[in-house]
Simulated assay, not measured.
Amino acid sequence: MQLPGRRLQPDACVMVDAPARLHLGFLDPNASLGRAFGSLGLVIDSAGTQVEARRAAHDQIEGTMTDAERERIAICLERLHAAYDPTPVAIEVTRTPRAHSGLGSGTQLSLAVGSAFVRLLGHAATSAELASLLGRGARSGIGVLGFDCGGLLVDGGPSGDLHPGVPPLLARQPFPDSWRVLLVSDNAREGLHGAEERRGLAALAPFPQKLAAHLCHLLLMKILPGVAERNLVPFAQGLTEMQQTIGEYFAPVQGGVFASPDVERALRAVAAERTAGIGQSSWGPTGFAIVADAREAEGALATARDATRGVPHIECTIVTGRNRGATVRGVVAPQQQRIDAA
Rank of each mutant, 00 (worst) to 15 (best):
G330I: 02
S178H: 12
A124H: 05
R329P: 06
S260D: 01
V227M: 07
S32H: 15
I61S: 05
S127G: 12
A112T: 13
F147N: 12
L111A: 04
A302G: 14
L201H: 13
E196G: 09
D161T: 12
L153W: 00
Q108A: 04
E241K: 15
R6T: 12
D262I: 01
R72H: 11
G141H: 04
A212L: 01
A138S: 12
A289L: 10
A125Y: 05
L22D: 09
P252W: 11
E296L: 11
L239H: 07
S101M: 07
V93P: 01
L169C: 03
F26E: 01
Q254I: 11
V270K: 06
V43K: 00
D306E: 05
E190L: 12
E92I: 03
P4N: 09
A297G: 08
L152Q: 01
E197G: 14
V328Y: 05
L121A: 14
I73Y: 00
R274C: 00
G141D: 08
L220W: 08
L218A: 05
W179C: 15
T327I: 11
V332R: 12
P29N: 12
F288E: 01
L267A: 06
T96H: 01
P174D: 12
D161L: 13
S32Q: 13
F175V: 03
S46H: 08
A124Y: 01
L218Y: 06
G157C: 03
T107Q: 07
P206I: 03
G277E: 01
C13V: 07
V253F: 06
T87D: 13
R6V: 15
T126Y: 08
V184E: 00
R35V: 09
Q2I: 13
L218Q: 06
G114W: 01
R7Q: 14
A272R: 10
D28T: 13
